[in-house]
Write a protein that binds this DNA or RNA. Structure first.
Length: 292
DNA sequence: CTTCGTTCCTGTACGC
DNA sequence: TGCGTACAGGAACGAA
């Protein structure tokens, strides 16, 4: 399940393998993969054909390729199971191949493979970034906040935004308009590190607690990035098809009934937002109404 | 305006 | 063996 560290691993791979190369043709094999590109597959392919890739960028879980048209980007979101793979152009088609791009040099091709089809690609317009001077951002994601690894992320502004909200801290961490790049896995890990329960009301958070949450997010993401990201199955891989190793370092996520690494209490699993939340009942006690 | 439940999709695991 | 169900879950969308 790609979150920020996994997307960053993919971005770095693309930077190595496609920068400077010219796209020859783009084939859409499944229209759902470009459903956010409202002009359709023909327009998507036509906008990208002949363009030379000039660089790569990322914000949160979105990554994009810049091209020799400064107003255009190839924007990608991997969803739950999306993969961007670089490989020999004559290899067999993957079962869930959705989009394929070839290059004029006849070398390695670029494939978007996505089993569960929650991911998508689009050819998007680039506009000036409201958060970082001199930077550009694709229009469809201009509304999301910077991610916590960006210089443009505003820690104090994040604290004030949380205090204005009336929701639980985990829901806020998953809200890409407040902080981008955090998904279910790293939200649970960051809250475990910060010693906060997922349902803690955001309006009661203290400044030191928010500092702990942000430190937790940044530290766990940096640690995951250092080992190539988190993989539970074969669905997350880098551009060469290799998995990361961070699942061996997770403290809370997926560890139901296993002992907490700090206190030994069995990790608890709750259903929240129709998905799993893992926490330590002792290190992350459930908040009581009226306590704060 | 904010908040929150629903929906999209496919493959795997598991109980009976 | 096969069938039904739970689960994995990001984010757009609509309702309240």
């Amino acid at each position: 399940m790609p979150e920020l560290p996994e997307v960053e691993v993919v971005r770095r791979g693309l930077a190595d393998w496609v920068t400077g190369r010219t796209i020859e043709s783009v084939t859409v094999l499944h229209p759902r993969a470009i459903r956010r590109h409202v002009a359709g597959p023909g327009d998507f392919a036509a906008r990208l054909a002949g363009r030379t890739v000039t660089g790569t960028a990322r914000r949160g879980k979105y990554l994009w390729l810049t091209v020799d048209d400064p107003a255009l980007a190839l924007l990608a979101h991997l969803g739950m199971s999306g993969q961007l793979l670089v490989g020999e152009p004559d290899r067999p088609r993957e079962k869930h191949l959705r989009v394929r791009a070839t290059f004029t040099d006849g070398g390695l091709d670029l494939r978007f493979v996505d089993q569960r089809t929650f991911g998508h690609l689009m050819a998007a317009e680039l506009v000036p970034d409201a958060f970082e001077a001199a930077a550009s951002v694709p229009v469809p994601i201009a509304h999301i906040a910077p991610d916590p690894l960006e210089d443009a992320f505003d820690d104090e502004g994040f604290y004030r935004a949380l205090r204005r909200r009336h929701t639980g801290v985990k829901r806020a961490l998953l809200d890409q308009s407040l902080i981008s790049g955090v998904g279910n896995i790293y939200a649970d890990e960051a809250l475990w590190r910060a010693g906060l329960h997922w349902a803690r009301p955001t309006e009661t958070l203290t400044r030191p607690e928010v500092v702990r949450v942000l430190r937790g997010v940044r530290e766990v993401m940096a640690a995951a990035l250092a080992v190539g990201g988190t993989s539970f199955d074969s669905l997350y891989v880098n551009v060469n098809g290799d998995s990361g190793y961070f699942d061996r370092s997770l403290e809370a996520y997926g560890r139901r009934d296993e002992p907490c690494g700090r206190c030994g209490t069995p990790i608890r699993r709750d259903v929240f937002m129709n998905r799993s939340s893992y926490s330590c009942p002792r290190c992350q006690p459930r908040p009581r109404r009226g306590v704060f």
